[in-house]
Simulated scan of single mutants.
Amino acid sequence: MIFRLRTGVAGAMVQKFVTYRVRLAVVGDVSRQAAESGALRDFLRETNEGGHLWFVPGYDELGEKLRAAG
C-alpha cells in the first residue's frame, strides 16, 4: 500500500470525522511506511494525539487507547 499525503485528501477526511464526531481506528502496522516518509510520520503522530482518528498496530493497542479515552 502506498501512502501519499500531497493531495490533501487525508486532511480533508480527518476533518470530516472531527466535524461529525465520528471515531475511526486504522488497525495495522504502518511503521515501515512511516519510516520512509516524514510527512506520514507527522500525520500519524498528529492524528494519534487527537480523539477521532487513530492508527494502531494491533487490537491490544486499540483497547488500551479506548480505555484511556474513557
Rank of each mutant, 00 (worst) to 15 (best):
M1I: 14
M1S: 14
I2H: 15
I2R: 14
I2G: 11
I2Q: 11
F3S: 04
F3P: 02
R4L: 04
R4K: 04
L5F: 03
L5I: 01
R6T: 06
T7I: 01
G8F: 02
G8Y: 00
V9E: 08
A10G: 02
A10E: 04
A12Q: 08
M13E: 13
M13L: 15
V14I: 06
V14G: 00
K16Q: 11
K16M: 14
F17N: 10
F17T: 08
T19Y: 07
T19K: 13
Y20H: 12
Y20I: 10
R21A: 09
R21N: 13
R21E: 15
R23M: 08
R23I: 06
R23P: 05
V26R: 10
V26S: 05
V27A: 00
G28S: 02
G28V: 02
D29R: 06
D29T: 11
V30H: 07
S31A: 15
S31P: 07
R32F: 13
R32D: 10
A34P: 04
A34N: 03
A34M: 05
A34E: 10
A35R: 09
A35K: 12
A35V: 09
A35C: 11
E36L: 15
E36P: 01
G38H: 02
A39M: 03
R41T: 04
D42H: 02
D42L: 05
L44F: 08
L44T: 06
R45H: 09
E46I: 04
T47F: 00
T47R: 02
T47M: 00
N48E: 08
E49Q: 14
E49N: 13
G51E: 10
G51V: 13
H52G: 01
H52N: 11
H52K: 08
F55N: 04
V56Q: 03
V56N: 07
P57L: 15
G58A: 14
G58H: 14
G58I: 10
Y59S: 14
Y59F: 12
D60R: 15
E61A: 15
L62R: 05
L62T: 03
G63H: 10
G63D: 13
E64W: 14
K65I: 05
K65D: 07
K65C: 14
K65Q: 10
L66G: 05
A68D: 11
A68E: 11
A69G: 09
G70F: 15
G70D: 10
G70R: 10
